[in-house]
Measured scan of single mutants.
Amino acid sequence: MIVFVRFNSSHGFPVEVDSDTSIFQLKEVVAKRQGVPADQLRVIFAGKELRNDWTVQNCDLDQQSIVHIVQRPWRKGQEMNATGGDDPRNAAGGCEREPQSLTRVDLSSSVLPGDSVGLAVILHTDSRKDSPPAGSPAGRSIYNSFYVYCKGPCQRVQPGKLRVQCSTCRQATLTLTQGPSCWDDVLIPNRMSGECQSPHCPGTSAEFFFKCGAHPTSDKETSVALHLIATNSRNITCITCTDVRSPVLVFQCNSRHVICLDCFHLYCVTRLNDRQFVHDPQLGYSLPCVAGCPNSLIKELHHFRILGEEQYNRYQQYGAEECVLQMGGVLCPRPGCGAGLLPEPDQRKVTCEGGNGLGCGFAFCRECKEAYHEGECSAVFEASGTTTQAYRVDERAAEQARWEAASKETIKKTTKPCPRCHVPVEKNGGCMHMKCPQPQCRLEWCWNCGCEWNRVCMGDHWFDV
């Protein structure tokens, strides 16, 4: 396979590697080409510095992935760790964990309700045991953590790749202090920090972006993250068709209702045909949960890209028209025109101005929308079919299609509260000796007794199943 190397943020060049090629071997190839010592090179990928003893497969490097290699003399205490030698983080029983690669970060837990604080980093599902597709590297999971809308060759929703760059020099040479644990960490600028490894760059702020994971991409090709779309790892039924499908869209209502993408497309087109989208002054033209839940309008309007190009163009047109109407304007009634106009409040005669090729020149009556006339309008008909009709959803289907309910059931079956801080902690095999993952707590306690870890627990039921 081919990976592209950008040395000291210059133009990239291809390097041929195998899945079992080590990072140090990659350094040696680059060092020979650039005429520099291999031990002064640092390989940066997806916000993480890659260790010498890791392989291309370990690092989730795919065909035509772009890695950054910078030349920086080692500072005291760094060289041993980078070589894969006596790194205290690798000691058996050590409590410190390697910062998780962005290629394996899962933010789907952050669609849980606000009262489930902490689960994004504490609760991990076991539903990723799908067998890898044919042709994928051994052991590589097909679980997708992110979804994007690819405006490039795909023109559809695709699995996405999370990447990070330095907000100062805009190069992907920043190593994160810690990985993101929720969508806010990724979507809110300057929320996460790190250290830029580019020479002479003092940058410390992280800037995240997404790429389409279905095809090789260049540095400049980015895609918009659709953070309401998630892999259906909890096997929730769709609120409309009641099938279990994946991926799904999880509405931001209190129940976190789930809808499959085909039904979401149908829901949007139906509402669009009836012009029953909601115009929100802050958000724009949007839709609420299909069950009509309060405070559930979709905030990231790129989710409506699921409509496809033709329907999305209609959505944008109707949204612009609705904006004009909300501002007190009118639409030209001549067939084939429909231009938005903003006449004076007491102006009865409205002319669709033909300047700049935008208007048709038609003069019409503001009251009856017919060709302009003197005197009273002959008839004014009330528009028919403008009443909002509820999208029919079966109550039982709505009850079963809740992301929140599956989460709470998982928590109930696989977790116990920490005796000190009461945060839910998952036990997935292993011994009875637990350690609270909350940095402010870190209590060592017994899963069996529910009390602080002691010699009695150690001698009596340390390794009970």
Score class of each variant (00 low, 15 high):
I2D: 12
V3P: 04
V3H: 03
F4A: 04
F4T: 08
V5Y: 07
R6S: 04
R6F: 05
F7L: 03
N8F: 00
S9D: 06
S9L: 04
S10H: 14
G12N: 05
F13Q: 05
P14A: 04
V15Q: 02
E16V: 06
V17T: 03
D18W: 12
D18T: 13
S19P: 12
D20I: 03
T21G: 06
I23N: 00
F24V: 07
Q25S: 07
L26P: 01
L26W: 00
V29M: 15
A31H: 02
K32G: 07
K32M: 13
K32T: 10
V36A: 04
A38P: 10
D39P: 04
Q40W: 05
I44F: 05
A46W: 05
A46Q: 15
G47W: 01
G47I: 00
L50W: 02
D53S: 09
W54M: 13
T55K: 08
Q57I: 06
Q57E: 10
Q57D: 10
N58V: 05
N58G: 12
D60I: 06
L61W: 03
D62V: 13
D62N: 14
D62E: 15
Q64T: 09
S65L: 03
S65I: 03
I66H: 08
V67W: 02
H68W: 02
I69V: 14
I69R: 01
Q71R: 08
R72P: 05
W74Q: 13
G77F: 13
E79A: 09
E79H: 12
M80W: 11
T83E: 14
T83L: 14
G84L: 12
G85M: 12
D86Y: 12
D87E: 14
D87V: 12
P88M: 10
N90I: 12
A91T: 10
A92C: 11
G93A: 14
G94D: 12
G94Q: 10
C95G: 13
R97D: 12
P99G: 14
P99I: 11
Q100G: 13
S101F: 08
L102E: 14
V105Y: 13
L107Y: 14
L107M: 13
S108F: 06
V111D: 13
V111E: 14
L112D: 14
G114P: 14
D115C: 05
D115L: 05
S116R: 10
S116L: 04
S116V: 05
V117G: 15
V117F: 12
G118T: 06
L119C: 14
L119D: 15
A120R: 11
V121H: 15
I122P: 15
L123W: 11
D126C: 06
R128K: 14
K129A: 11
P132A: 12
G135M: 12
A138Y: 11
G139T: 13
G139A: 10
G139C: 13
S141Y: 07
Y143C: 09
Y143H: 08
F146M: 06
F146N: 01
F146T: 03
Y147L: 03
V148D: 02
C150V: 02
K151D: 15
G152H: 14
P153V: 12
Q155R: 15
V157E: 04
V157A: 07
P159A: 08
P159I: 10
P159M: 07
P159Y: 07
L162T: 01
Q165S: 08
Q165L: 08
C166D: 00
C166H: 00
C169M: 00
Q171D: 10
T175V: 13
T175R: 13
L176K: 02
Q178W: 05
G179A: 12
S181H: 09
S181T: 12
C182E: 09
W183K: 01
V186A: 04
V186H: 01
L187P: 01
I188D: 06
I188F: 10
I188W: 07
N190Y: 08
M192R: 05
S193I: 11
Q197S: 14
Q197P: 07
Q197T: 13
P199M: 07
H200L: 12
P202I: 09
P202D: 14
G203Y: 02
T204Y: 05
T204F: 05
S205I: 13
S205R: 10
S205P: 02
S205Q: 12
A206V: 05
E207T: 07
F208D: 00
F210M: 06
F210N: 00
K211T: 14
A214E: 10
P216L: 08
P216D: 14
T217S: 13
K220M: 12
L226G: 01
L228E: 02
L228P: 00
L228G: 03
A230H: 15
T231Y: 09
S233A: 10
N235M: 09
I236H: 05
I236A: 09
C241W: 00
C241L: 01
T242N: 15
T242P: 02
D243F: 10
D243P: 01
S246W: 02
S246E: 06
P247R: 05
V248N: 01
L249C: 03
Q252A: 11
S255K: 13
R256Y: 05
R256D: 02
R256S: 07
L261E: 03
C263L: 00
F264M: 03
H265P: 03
H265T: 07
L266K: 04
Y267S: 02
Y267I: 03
V269E: 06
R271Q: 14
L272H: 02
D274A: 04
Q276T: 10
Q276N: 09
F277H: 00
H279Y: 14
H279I: 05
L283R: 09
L283A: 09
Y285L: 04
L287H: 02
L287N: 00
V290P: 15
A291W: 05
S296I: 00
I298P: 00
K299Y: 06
E300S: 11
H302S: 14
H302Q: 15
H302T: 14
H302A: 14
H303K: 01
H303C: 05
I306P: 02
Q311C: 05
R314N: 03
Y315I: 11
Y315D: 00
Q316T: 13
A320M: 12
E321K: 05
E321G: 10
E322K: 04
C323Q: 15
C323A: 15
C323G: 12
V324Y: 08
L325T: 05
L325H: 04
Q326C: 05
G328W: 02
L331S: 04
P333N: 03
G336S: 08
C337S: 03
G338F: 06
G338E: 08
G338C: 07
A339L: 12
A339P: 03
A339H: 09
L342C: 08
L342M: 11
L342G: 04
P343S: 07
V350N: 03
T351W: 05
T351N: 08
T351E: 08
C352N: 02
C352Y: 02
C352H: 04
C352S: 02
E353N: 09
G355K: 09
N356V: 06
N356L: 07
N356K: 08
G359I: 07
F362W: 07
R366T: 06
E367P: 04
E367H: 08
C368P: 02
C368A: 02
E370M: 07
A371R: 08
Y372F: 10
Y372Q: 06
H373Q: 02
E374L: 08
S378E: 10
A379C: 07
A379I: 12
A383E: 12
S384C: 10
G385Q: 08
T386A: 14
T386Y: 13
T388I: 13
Y391G: 05
Y391K: 05
R392K: 15
D394F: 04
D394L: 05
E395D: 12
E395L: 12
E395P: 14
A397Q: 09
A397M: 11
E399W: 11
W403I: 04
A406S: 14
S407F: 09
K408I: 11
K408Y: 09
I411C: 08
K416E: 08
K416N: 06
K416P: 04
P417N: 15
P419W: 03
R420V: 08
R420S: 15
P424Q: 10
P424T: 13
E426W: 06
N428I: 14
G429I: 14
M432D: 02
M434S: 06
K435P: 07
C436E: 01
P437R: 06
Q438R: 05
Q438M: 04
P439D: 07
P439F: 08
C441W: 01
C441K: 01
C441H: 00
R442G: 09
W445Y: 15
W447N: 05
N448C: 07
C449P: 01
G450S: 05
G450N: 02
C451F: 15
E452P: 15
E452W: 15
N454F: 01
C457S: 01
G459E: 15
G459V: 15
D460E: 05
H461K: 00
W462L: 15
W462E: 01
F463E: 00
F463L: 02
